[in-house]
Design a protein around this nucleic acid. Sequence first.
DNA 1: AAGCTTTTTTTCGAGCTTCGAAAAAAATAA
DNA 2: TTATTTTTTTCGAAGCTCGAAAAAAAGCTT
Lengths: 415, 415
Amino acid sequence: MTVGVRHDDLRRRNRALVLTALRAANQRSRTEIANLTGLSNSTISAITSSMIEEGVLVELKGNDNGLARRGRPQVALALNPTLASVVAVTLTLNHVSAVLIDYAGEAVDEEVQDLATQELEGQALIEAVIGCVRRVLTRQRENGYHPSRIALAVQGITSSDSSSMLWSPITPDENTRFAPALAAAFGVPATVENDCNMITVALKWREPARYRKDFFAVMLSDGIGMGLMVKGELFSGTHSSGGEFGHMIHIPDGALCRCGKHGCIEAYAGNYALIRTARGGSEEDVPGAVVSQVEIQKLADAARASDGPERAAFLKAGRAIGFGLGSLFAVFDPAPVAIVGPGALAFDILEQPIRDAIARTAGGKHSAAISFETEPNEMPLIRLGCAMTALTKVDAEIIVPGLTTEKVLKGRKVA
Amino acid sequence: MTVGVRHDDLRRRNRALVLTALRAANQRSRTEIANLTGLSNSTISAITSSMIEEGVLVELKGNDNGLARRGRPQVALALNPTLASVVAVTLTLNHVSAVLIDYAGEAVDEEVQDLATQELEGQALIEAVIGCVRRVLTRQRENGYHPSRIALAVQGITSSDSSSMLWSPITPDENTRFAPALAAAFGVPATVENDCNMITVALKWREPARYRKDFFAVMLSDGIGMGLMVKGELFSGTHSSGGEFGHMIHIPDGALCRCGKHGCIEAYAGNYALIRTARGGSEEDVPGAVVSQVEIQKLADAARASDGPERAAFLKAGRAIGFGLGSLFAVFDPAPVAIVGPGALAFDILEQPIRDAIARTAGGKHSAAISFETEPNEMPLIRLGCAMTALTKVDAEIIVPGLTTEKVLKGRKVA
DNA sequence: AAGCTTTTTTTCGAGCTTCGAAAAAAATAA
DNA sequence: TTATTTTTTTCGAAGCTCGAAAAAAAGCTT
């Protein structure tokens, strides 16, 4: 049973509303916030003045935004960038990057590093990630940054409590407990999230007009990932990160998938599957090493040039994705789809077979109306999603009324 | 942006908490409610006393529940059954029923009626439903019942605003706008919901211990339906009732489905598909009239008796359901499954092929651990789900503080 | 440049609500 | 009949939001 609503919950929720309004677009006046939240001017005045005193918000004076109007000018409020900071870490095949981000969401510094992820076992991988974070933090320590949180995005399945990477194609290790290790190394909370889920979160922050309540983000890369936004909330599985679109079954007992099962969508549409099909390999051929993006581009060029085995491979892939989306639409209803990742560069070849397949499913009613947007470069989205996820969690600590900021972020504040 | 929390929202939410506690188990003392909700005794005292004055709750005196303890005895509070009432209507193939239910959730009277649903066009079907409701209400009018709401459950797809039945196998009509018609006929709000969704809601009310946060209800009948409970909430589609498990694709371009597309799970596991397969019909044979349950029972008996075409048909059906569940588990993660409806009587034949198929999918990790419960008789569940859905909506009107009950339920109260 | 107008922001009192403590109520036990 | 125990109500304190009024900070006017 949900717990009763006490009196300070009210203030907490309204503080959260103010913070959310400023996260969506920094620099808003008190009047704008009042209109946005539906709260009265007096309430906003009370809330913001205590938040300014706490150091959460700052007044941006002397920014006249050009048009001079009659009357007392609005004073823009903004998140205090020096209040706190977070680190957004991204672990992908052969690469790890760590970005230090201030409380207002601006990137401060970044550390990128190559890494033979496929050859690193659990502990070594964890230490490589820790090392990357440590480097950027050491560099910025003199500027007084002590992050409040670390958010790690990985390719693969993560646990629903955001503590572990349960499985990933980039390493042989299973159930890698990144979060406790990072938390221990830096003395702050850490989380591990699925990369596609972070992309989905990011799309909503970046383009709230287009990606609002319901949409799917399909990541086409070596594997096939998905993030789902359902009724305005990130849809994650009940135990894991969920949304394993790539492992829905396309053909029962069909082609061998990287996961060891047969007939998954990925076994037709993943990069390795494209190569396998185009080269006339057997569907039982064990998926080999990760395919370079250059190779896929060559494959796509060949498919565009002539109606050979390459084009057939893309048709087969599109068909698998399309039928999968059709099945998904049967359960969730049709919604806009964002095609993210390197595969988006070949979407011109994929779109028609995808649409054809969707049209052959019951879930694909009005398939022509379904919109597809492409976004080949997924890294900025993953980082944005990570940053916003971590900052939102910091916000959740800050909104507790009565707690002074010092208590919440003891010693982690910028000097 | 969510609207700000004002002061009376607080009281409203806490009133809702009290009401929910009593709906889950009628007859609780103030002290029990305080412990359950986490609110203080004084708050519960204030809330319940105003609700008693409004006629929402009643004190049940002199019910000593057996054990006599020291101290002032607890006074049981209960929902006032005469405060309001709702009608739960169920429309299935060839039958319509209307049950009058009091505010405490007890059935008062029921009207069941045969109906040639497949031959009735929209308006005639609507009027038949209205007639059934009218009969039970006319009979009970002398007892002072004036329902506050009507909830209709139908087989088929309904709109997400609960106004229309978009498509149903029981009638050729499409987009039948039941809700406005019922609302106009009886002058009270009406809703149309999908039967499987109602079953899912009902399971949670009836067996909260087993069916709590995450589970799937699969309805095996002429068609294949599904209701999904995800994170404690009924999962419905973004535009329609959603959860059209039966129309996820099992075999791309496979057997002809009743929906006109090919390869849906239903085209292998629906009653008509079982008959078609067992009799050696082509997968392109157009699904005929609805199959009688007796016929399916005979088929199941034959399948149990010997390894002939009947058993092969059930194997094929189980395989389709199993692969479908595997795909679903990939997206939602594994969860308990309730097998509801007449098909549950043949679950002994279906279980093994279902489990075998799940084990062949990536989503079916730990497939042996997935629990299946069967419930052949779906009607009581549909009615319970309808009743609770309608009563919960009545509750939502009642919890608004300051509104006296007379204002909310003007003239609809029992005399 | 001084006063007027306009708009934003703060201040102040009223009206809710919840909570804890104390009081009242209603039973059993001695 | 009195003491004990448990539930329920009462009462004052504290916190929050709101509307109205006041204060602040600008441009506009003469």
